[in-house]
């Protein structure tokens, strides 16, 4: 018997792709490695310092002493191992590559589309490029990161990914939006 397990993406068969590269685009990432870093109690500052100083990874704020680290180049176990080496006793690193789904919404109407479900002021002066936080999008909690003036990443619990994509399509109903898996 051959045991070569193939992983499926939670949105395989349910993404409801809207083809093309329209003015606004929602890309679902297939194989982003995602880790959660939890600072060891009393070592929040050290953990944050290491994450900031190390340019190799982009850490996104979730809450005090808690960050999401995303990587498009590492395998999940490599990402966890690399982070664990760098952070040592200052943090616990948990693989969440299968627990979360990363999406990128880009386009001139991106902030306006998000305002149909998100209460946070996304004006570039209020939520600048590089900022990230966890917030409510309609009924779902998502981690939102601004990666460009017209570009946002959303990270959501895997079991809610289908609902989030369905919501984003409705939020973008008045705007031109294409939806598909990201091509690497």
């Amino acid at each position: 018997m051959a045991y070569d397990y193939q992983a499926v993406h939670v949105l395989d068969g349910t993404i409801g792709a809207v083809p093309g590269q329209r003015a606004n685009h929602l890309a679902v990432h297939r194989a982003t490695a995602i880790a959660v870093v939890l600072a060891a109690p009393g070592h929040g500052a050290e953990a944050a310092g290491i994450l900031v100083a190390d340019g190799a990874f982009e850490a996104r704020f979730c809450g005090p002493g808690e960050w999401l680290v995303l990587s498009e180049v590492h395998a999940p176990e490599t990402l966890v191992a690399e982070l664990a080496i760098r952070l040592g006793a200052f943090a616990f690193v948990v693989d969440q590559s299968h627990g979360r789904v990363a999406l990128t919404l880009s386009g001139p109407d991106a902030a306006r589309i998000l305002a149909n479900g998100i209460a946070v002021d996304l004006h570039p002066e209020a939520f600048a490029v590089g900022r990230a936080a966890t917030m409510l999008c309609n009924h779902l909690s998502v981690n939102l990161a601004r990666t460009g003036i017209d570009r946002f990443d959303l990270v959501v619990m895997r079991s809610f990914a289908e609902a989030l994509v369905a919501d984003l399509k409705v939020m973008a109903r008045s705007h031109d939006l294409s939806v598909d898996f990201a091509t690497r």
């Binding site: 149909n116 079991s159 369905a166």
Partner: peptide, 18 residues
């Protein structure tokens, strides 16, 4: 608003749903 049908209460599916 858009909170109707499946948008009123998000559906959660198990990873073994398929």
């Amino acid at each position: 608003g858009s909170s109707r049908d499946e948008h009123a209460m998000p559906v959660r599916r198990s990873p073994l749903h398929g």
